[in-house]
Write a protein that binds this DNA or RNA. Structure first.
Lengths: 213, 213
DNA sequence: GGGCTCGTAGTCAAGTTTGACTACAGAGCT
DNA sequence: AGCTCTGTAGTCAAACTTGACTACGAGCCC
């Protein structure tokens, strides 16, 4: 399923009502095609599928102003909002959801309350530790790890990514604890479509104290 | 395409001739279902598809000893071997191939020569640096990074994974440079199906000097 | 000796993803 | 006028993935 449903639901939600091409543009603006499978085909498919499943409501519209085929506009339903929140929470808390879901969830995390985000991230760290332990145990049977040979590098890779993933998560936890960003119920929300002004001292791209390397 | 073709081609190659269920078992033994999409359906599909494309040659066999439907056995062709090597090299050298392709490629890396593996890993590090630079530049336009708000965390995530990915790769380079494992043309090869004995001082599961955390 | 589970081997439909393609309007050039 | 280029909006077939399902033999258990 990947991250596309989360992305599309979130984009529709922010717009209130939107047609496929707008979603497509938003996702491209967010750079989502770089770190997820947000390609046109997938987006239109997700819209149709989720409309069929009652997560979105579809409105057929007249052939529109600027040329092209007739458009369909979508609005998120109540069930869609529930699904959106579920995917959002899963993306933050569960490493199994994959890095693209995490990235997408980061983009929408401010729609939750600060305290909940911190809980979810704590759960993420815990899940990573559990997984790390499972990997090392599974691949270190009675005979000892020596017999694995170069195959052991695969395990090494996964352990390394669990460790660095947890490290990154703790960095984010620190920033959020220290008051970074504006979460739900904390004043005017950050709309992900260029906010005009609003200096945020925690914006990244510059090195945060405590970050890795 | 993911890693499944690499895994299936490599497994068939190591067996010389194998039917679907053997491949399936090998991949499960390697734990591949944990870190890739190596599920039965995908495996059988990949076998058929690659047979159709001339990467594998299919032999229909009698209904076999132990119950069940008639089996099909596969052998790798010359074009299949080429494809296997191409996927293997891409998995090692190109981060775009994804972590599952990297993991799969690690399992087969000893089928290449040591010098080439080192070259490929060097290219991987270079590609990660290029990507890192592209991300930071793209997301740090004239207005400065402040206006990104929490969206900047997405960039932060990708930069972090590029950095830690490069760090891990350099660790592997070090081990391979120091003589770990037995590569092509260096004596009896390591067969990935339980080798019986053969202590390898570089087997992992224990911490390597120079590893992260 | 009937039923149960386990291991062997694979199929199938439904859903997803991909990349190439269609179709139209308006702008700009010659 | 005629032509191409760009932007808008979306479709389509082919491939891939998933999870549930089929089918059959052998061992075992009471």
């Amino acid at each position: 399923m990947s991250a596309i449903r989360l992305l599309v639901l979130g984009a529709v939600r922010q717009h209130g009502r939107a047609h496929g091409y707008q979603i497509r543009n938003d996702l491209e603006y967010w750079g989502a095609h770089e770190w997820s499978n947000a390609k046109p085909g997938s987006i239109y498919h997700a819209l149709k599928q989720m409309a069929k499943q009652g997560l979105l409501h579809a409105y057929e519209t007249a052939p529109s102003t600027a040329g092209g085929p007739p458009r369909t506009e979508y609005e998120i339903t109540e069930r869609g909002t529930e699904e959106f929140l579920a995917l959002l929470r899963a993306g933050l808390a569960s490493p199994d959801a994959g890095p693209d879901s995490l990235a997408g969830a980061l983009g929408f995390m401010v729609e939750l309350e600060r305290a909940e985000v911190l809980e979810l991230l704590a759960e993420r760290v815990a899940a990573l530790r559990r997984w790390r332990d499972a990997v090392t145990e599974y691949y270190t049977p009675a005979e000892g790890p020596e017999r694995l040979g170069h195959i052991g590098e695969i395990m090494n890779l996964w352990v390394h990514s669990a460790d660095t993933g947890a490290e990154w998560t703790r960095g984010l936890v620190r920033r959020v604890e220290e008051g970074a960003y504006t979460f739900a119920g904390e004043g005017e929300p950050f709309v992900g479509v260029l906010p005009e002004g609003e200096e945020n001292p925690y914006a990244t791209g510059v090195r945060h104290p405590g970050d890795a390397r």
